[in-house]
Design a protein around this nucleic acid. Structure first.
Lengths: 147, 147
DNA sequence: TTGCTAATGATTATCATTATCAATAGTAAA
DNA sequence: TTTACTATTGATAATGATAATCATTAGCAA
């Protein structure tokens, strides 16, 4: 938990940005959440600790955390940007249940490798990708909770 | 081009929906565009043929075309929903150049198969997925048009 | 034709996010 | 420690894509 703060402080110094209590608070709350959060969700949590904070500040600083390499944006395609930890949290894809919304982080090195090759076939050099797998989890199928 | 119209008419009949000139026009223009289009783009094109058409009608009916299985939504993550042909246009993923925006449709049956297996490992039955590969195309790398 | 009701077009609402801007507050130098 | 500079904040308005509303229009079956 110390390392992330160091990274953030160095990032701020390097970019000539200022260290503010709001930024510390946002980083702190973000780090304590293990799951991905939207700006809205984080704002709701943060308000309890500092009711005077503005929601624009939360939006602004989540972007900043991404720039600092501490957060990573994820887009589940529902129009809301979520943020997840990027430090000590290696790349992965997302397996999402259509029934209950449960989300599992997955990786398959073979898929990753094949993606690179497919890109190369078309003369592209792959920089990144987004893979979302949608399906129905075991419980949902058992409980008829899904289609 | 006849087949799609048949499908649409049957879909309308089956759902007790009406056949209107606006719907015919939207379908016609959509079918003539080979590339994916947003509702906004399609509206701009359609206005030239029928300036009285409302943009809500375009939004509404693109959704309807999706329900009818003639169109398919694609989400490039820029906040705009685009529609592409779904009839006689099998599933594929998208390889997008970060430099010039060029888009190539790709498929790799091994990747597809592996995705299913990864899902199964977690007790999921895969229904669909979204895979977007981002990189830099040959021209962009040659012309220093990208990072 | 008539009658029922879906569809349309104009408009407003929504929702996440961004821009604006006056007031506030880090921070480096005096 | 004061000053001065300017980044940051919070409140609020703006944005942009899409959805909802609603009175009017128009398919279509009887």
């Amino acid at each position: 938990m110390k390392a992330e703060q160091d990274i953030f402080h160095k990032f701020l110094a390097q970019k000539d940005l200022r260290d503010t209590p709001q930024r510390e608070l946002i980083l702190d709350v973000f780090l304590k959440r293990e799951e991905h959060v939207s700006a809205e969700q984080l704002y709701d949590i943060i308000k309890k600790r500092d009711p005077s904070i503005g929601q624009a500040t939360v939006y602004r600083n989540l972007k900043l955390l991404s720039e600092a390499g501490l957060a990573r944006e994820v887009d589940f395609g529902d129009g809301v940007t979520r943020y997840e930890h990027n430090y000590n949290h290696p790349h992965h894809d997302h397996l999402v249940c259509r029934g209950c919304g449960k989300m599992v982080e997955v990786v398959d090195s073979v898929i990753e490798e094949l993606q690179k090759r497919v890109a190369e076939q078309y003369g592209f050099v792959l920089t990144d990708h987004a893979l979302y797998l949608y399906g129905n989890c075991a419980e949902c199928r058992k409980g008829h909770r899904s289609g």
